[in-house]
């Protein structure tokens, strides 16, 4: 299985993401610069955290016009797993690949700490190795992580089981404690917490590891059937 890590100018968790794939699942992984236009040959796409284009205007607003984003949308349409973490989540929201928007954290602080998350849906390609309702420890590091969506969208998210992670401790003010959501199809996940920073006990938690093993597990099952 081959992962792509998209690099925007200002991405700063790209190396962590690359390392997480190597460390957690030992699969093939390559960086893809934002000016590229194709993701042919990749089986999964990772949008890392950071401050793409300096967060100018709004986080993710400018990155979503990068040439590579057309290829990311194509990969998503083809059903490939697309994971956006932190700034990657913001890019997915600005691209309308996921519903809602981000605001500044309610307390206006940059929040940088490990927080408990609840796995709300363990049937996705990203969470099939977790237990339903499991509490996991994953670090967050963001200033604009206050997820917003209107009542109608929230009802749809709930109805389609798109809320995948919630905060056990909601410090940023997110609507309905939302930490991570998928698209309706379930193959695009955006989350503010950083699973790629939690793949080794040495770093305080290895609870993020199962997210990567989930992706690989589902890919292997799918390819065993088709081959």
């Amino acid at each position: 299985m081959k992962f792509a890590v998209i690099m925007f100018p200002g991405s700063n968790c790209d190396v962590d993401m690359y390392h997480a794939v190597e460390e957690a699942v030992g699969e093939e992984v390559e960086y893809v610069w934002h000016n590229e236009t194709s993701l042919e040959g990749f089986d999964a796409v990772l949008l890392p955290g950071g401050f793409s284009y300096g967060d100018y205007l709004r986080p993710g607003a400018i990155a979503h016009f990068s040439p590579i984003m057309e290829a990311v949308k194509k990969a998503a349409d083809e059903g490939k797993p697309v994971l956006g973490v932190c700034n990657g989540f913001q890019v997915l929201l600005e691209s309308r690949m996921l519903p809602g928007a981000m605001r500044r954290n309610k307390n206006l602080h940059f929040i940088c700490k490990t927080l408990p998350l609840t796995v709300e849906n363990n049937t996705t390609v990203f969470t099939n190795s977790y237990e339903q309702g499991e509490t996991i420890q994953i670090p967050v590091a963001h200033g604009d992580g206050n997820y917003y969506c209107d009542e109608k969208t929230l009802a749809e998210l709930r109805e389609n089981n798109q809320i995948v992670f919630t905060y056990g401790l909601n410090e940023n003010g997110s609507t309905a404690d939302i930490a991570g959501i998928t698209n309706k199809e379930g193959n695009v996940l955006g989350m503010m917490p950083h699973p790629e920073r939690a793949v080794e006990e040495l770093l305080g938690s290895a609870d993020g590891k199962k997210l990567f093993t989930s992706i690989v597990k589902q890919w292997r099952e799918k390819n065993a059937v088709t081959s």
Binding site: L57, A61, I62, F65, E94, P99, A101, Y148
Partner: peptide, 8 residues
Amino acid sequence: KLLANPVI
């Protein structure tokens, strides 16, 4: 497209 985010 860019200057505003019509969601919020």
